[in-house]
Design a protein around this nucleic acid. Structure first.
Length: 380
RNA sequence: GGGUAGGUUGAGCAGGUGGUGAGCUCCGCUGACUGUAGAUCAGCCGUCUUUCGACUGUGGGGGUUCGAUUCCCUCCCUGCCCA
């Protein structure tokens, strides 16, 4: 069997905790790590064009198996030349398997050992998602990295339910690998196990024993405390040891979370947060978060962030953005999203830089303090 | 000038035939959002009070009545019709 390596990895350990600095190469290009991937569930990062994403510095983006298969369907995307061509994004794409929808659309699906049956939120029709079908859909979409189907659950559930979902995820992981459809597509496995240290260790050992191209950590940032997330990452990091494959923390996240995770060896992140909060008027800056809908912003002639080089900060005032949001003008969503994605990717660039020049701790301190100061409850 | 329909908390409304009008939608204020059913959701939105709750409020004034948004008189304002 002579599969040409779909992606190659190169990581160098740094002296900051377990943080690693490296590069991942796919047939659609390379990405620097640690890296943040904007989420484009329905073949679009909401409110942004591929050009916007490029200018913002995006290297790899996400697409979604469940949503794209419901509409426009995987087969149609394949007929139209694959996801890259369909959405005009020529950089690397990672597709999520639909595992998150097993969680987020819990009331619209039924899970059994073989897979999950969904009632479509679009038209009520039923759709069967198995590990094999998830891999087939992702092969049709033609993403650079496919994710194994997993089952994540609320970490607050009784232990036996965490165990059941974890063991099911392990069985689905093996089936996903057996079903992998194309040699030029990498496949990542996903560690589950809630926030139980022994289960997380068991899951990390089980998943990393399989010939996946990368290891993902799922089931976090779903409501658990920051302390639980950090402790869980410690356990996983220990269990993975010197494993050289890329490590992807799914669904994270917030500016503060990046630091805690990178310090524990995470290479890849994805999250809807920067784009979602942007659409509701919240922007991120070096001074923390700012709600553009607050009444005082209406008279603020300055840019969102004077240090930011994005289109919104270069050409427009906070007052203008405040007006656009109040008037529900569509440009508000685009400009705020442009800024948050730009700022987040620039933060990741500075974070990478800090791993080599020793400024990781002070950078983290600055960002953490700024967001603690401007976040009423969550601290993000 | 005559007729007619109206006047309810920033706006627009609902309701109410003598027995507890603070209800809705906007607007506004604030918060939330972590592998996107999200340009969404939640709370507040007369005054005082953290809350409980208390008080005020149906165009103005007056009258009848134990009690008036309701019945009577009068005035003001708005729309429409007629002159």
């Amino acid at each position: 069997m002579s599969l040409h390596a779909p992606i190659t990895f190169s990581f160098a350990s740094t002296d900051v905790g377990r943080a690693r600095l490296g590069r991942i190469l796919t047939s659609h290009g390379g990405i620097d790590t640690p890296q943040f991937m904007p989420v484009g569930t329905q073949a679009t990062v909401k409110a942004l064009t591929p050009g916007d994403l490029r200018t913002a510095g995006a290297q790899m983006i996400l697409g979604n198996t469940y949503h794209l298969n419901l509409r426009p369907t995987a087969e149609r995307v394949a007929r139209l030349g694959g996801l890259h061509r369909f959405m005009s994004w020529d950089g690397p794409i990672l597709t999520d398997s639909g595992g998150f929808q097993v969680f987020s659309l819990a009331h619209l699906r039924r899970v059994d050992d073989d897979g999950a049956t969904f009632t479509s939120h679009l038209d009520g029709s039923t759709h069967r998602l198995t590990p094999e079908r998830a891999m087939e859909i992702q092969a049709l979409l033609g993403s650079d990295i496919a994710m194994a189907l997993d089952q994540l659950v609320d970490p607050g559930l009784p232990r036996e339910q965490i165990v059941e979902a974890m063991e099911r995820t392990h069985r689905w992981a093996e089936r996903s690998l057996e079903a992998r459809g194309r040699p030029d597509q990498a496949v990542f496995g996903i560690i589950q196990g809630g926030v139980d240290p022994s289960l997380r260790r068991m899951s990390a050992t089980t998943i990393s024993a399989l010939p996946f191209d990368g290891i993902a950590i799922g089931g976090l940032s779903v409501g658990e405390s920051k302390a639980d997330m950090a402790a869980t990452l410690n356990v996983v990091s220990d269990a993975l040891g010197s494993d050289a494959r890329p490590r992807y923390l799914m669904g994270v996240g917030s500016p503060v979370d990046f630091f805690a995770a990178v310090e524990r060896g995470i290479d890849l992140f994805d999250c809807v947060l920067p784009t979602r909060v942007a659409r509701t008027g919240q922007v991120w800056t070096d001074a923390g978060r700012l709600n553009l809908r607050n009444s005082a912003v209406q008279d603020d002639p300055g840019p969102i962030d004077p240090a930011c080089a994005c289109e919104a900060c270069t050409n427009h005032s906070r007052a203008y953005l405040a007006h656009l949001f109040r008037a529900r003008e569509l440009l508000a969503y685009r400009l705020a999203s442009v800024h948050n994605v730009t700022w987040t990717l620039e933060l990741m660039r500075r974070l990478r830089e800090s791993l080599t020049d020793g400024s990781f701790a002070p950078l983290r301190e600055r960002v953490t303090a700024a967001f603690a100061r401007t976040s009423a409850a969550s601290g993000l």
